[in-house]
C-alpha cells in the first residue's frame, strides 16, 4: 500500500484517535436487527413471533419478502406472507439479513457517497457468498464465514462518514479523492473490528475482520478465517468488480497458500462467479 501524504496521515491519525477514545460515531445495530438477533437466540423463538417483530418495520418486511423471493433462496413458489417468508429463510438467515440491512441502509447512508456505499453493499454480499463456499471447501464454520464476509468492510462507511465530518469541522486541509480512498482503506479494518465488538458479535469475527488484508497477523485460531476473508474479498472483486482482480492474481493469492487451496479449487471457485452475481442481484 502506498504511504500516506502528510495530510492523509493527519486525517487518519485524527480518526484513529477518535476510535481509540471511543468518540467515533459507530453505527448502531438497527433496532429491528437487534430484536431479530435476540429472537433467533431464543430457543422458543418461532416463525410467528419473529414475523410479528418484523411486521412493525415496514421497510424491513418489504425487503425480507423480496429476499425470500430472490433466486439465492430458490423459492419454489413466491412467498406472499411474512410468516411464510420467515419460515423459508430460516431464523439464522433472517438474523443475517437484519445485519445486511444494517449495512445497506440507514446506518450507513453517507450523504454524497450513496453510490459508493451501495457498491460496497453488493461487494459485501458477494464476499459473504464466496466466504461460505470457501468455508465448505476447507471445513471451516460456514455461518461464521458468511457473517464475516458480510461485515468485512463494515468499517468503510463509518470511516467515510468520519472523514466527511472531519473535513467540514476541523482545520485539516481537504483530502484529494485518491487520498480519501487511501485513508478509508488504511483504517477500515480496525474501525470495522470496533463496530463488530460494539455490536457484541463474537471476538473471533472482530479478529478476522481486523486482519482481512493481512491474515498472517491474525491470532492463530482466527488466521484461517482471516485468510478466507482475504480470498473471498478478491473473488468478490473478480465477480463484482470494484477493484481490478485478475484470475492470475487469484491463483497467486497469498491466502490461497495459507488455506492450502490448489489451482483446481481456485478454478472451481472462479467458475462460480456468475452464479454469485445472480445471487447478489437478487439480494441487493
Amino acid at each position: 500500500m502506498p504511504s500516506l501524504s502528510p495530510t492523509a496521515s493527519a486525517h487518519a491519525a485524527a480518526v484513529r484517535q477518535r476510535c481509540a477514545g471511543k468518540t467515533l460515531d459507530l453505527p448502531l445495530l438497527p433496532e429491528v436487527a437487534h430484536k431479530v438477533r435476540s429472537a433467533t437466540r431464543n430457543p422458543e423463538g418461532d416463525a410467528l413471533t419473529l414475523a410479528n417483530v418484523i411486521r412493525r418495520d415496514a421497510a424491513f418486511a418489504g425487503y425480507l419478502l423480496r429476499v425470500a423471493n430472490s433466486p439465492a433462496y430458490a423459492a419454489r413458489a413466491p412467498s406472499t406472507s411474512l410468516q411464510q417468508a420467515v419460515s423459508r429463510l430460516g431464523l439464522r438467515t433472517i438474523g443475517e439479513i437484519a445485519i445486511v440491512i444494517a449495512c445497506s441502509t440507514r446506518a450507513f447512508a453517507v450523504k454524497g457517497h450513496e453510490g459508493t456505499v451501495r457498491a460496497l453493499f453488493r461487494h459485501a454480499l458477494a464476499t459473504a457468498l464466496y466466504a461460505r463456499e470457501i468455508a465448505r471447501l476447507r471445513r471451516l464454520n460456514v455461518e461464521d464465514a458468511f457473517l464475516a464476509g458480510l461485515l468485512h468492510d463494515v468499517g468503510r462507511p463509518t470511516v467515510i462518514q468520519a472523514l466527511v465530518d472531519q473535513q467540514t469541522v476541523t482545520s485539516l486541509p481537504l483530502l484529494s479523492p485518491v487520498e480519501f480512498d487511501l485513508v478509508v482503506s488504511d483504517l477500515h479494518e480496525e474501525v470495522g473490528a470496533e463496530i463488530i465488538l460494539a455490536w457484541t458479535l463474537p471476538m473471533r469475527l472482530a479478529e478476522s475482520i481486523r486482519h482481512h488484508h493481512d491474515p498472517e497477523r491474525a491470532s492463530g485460531d482466527c488466521r484461517p478465517m482471516a485468510a478466507l476473508l482475504a480470498l473471498a474479498d478478491d473473488l468478490s472483486h473478480f465477480a463484482v468488480p470494484l477493484r481490478r482482480v485478475t484470475e492470475e492474481g487469484l491463483h497467486a493469492h497469498p491466502a490461497a497458500g495459507l488455506l492450502n487451496l490448489y489451482p483446481e479449487e481456485i478454478v472451481a471457485l472462479v467458475a462460480r462467479a456468475s452464479q454469485i452475481v445472480s445471487q447478489v442481484d437478487g439480494l441487493s
Binding site: 461460505r132 468455508a135 471445513r139 460456514v142
Partner: peptide, 13 residues
C-alpha cells in the same frame, strides 16, 4: 452442506 448436516471432517467446525 457442512452448515446443518456435517460429516466427521466438518463436525468440529
Amino acid at each position: 452442506d457442512h452448515e446443518h448436516v456435517f460429516d466427521s471432517d466438518s463436525i468440529l467446525s
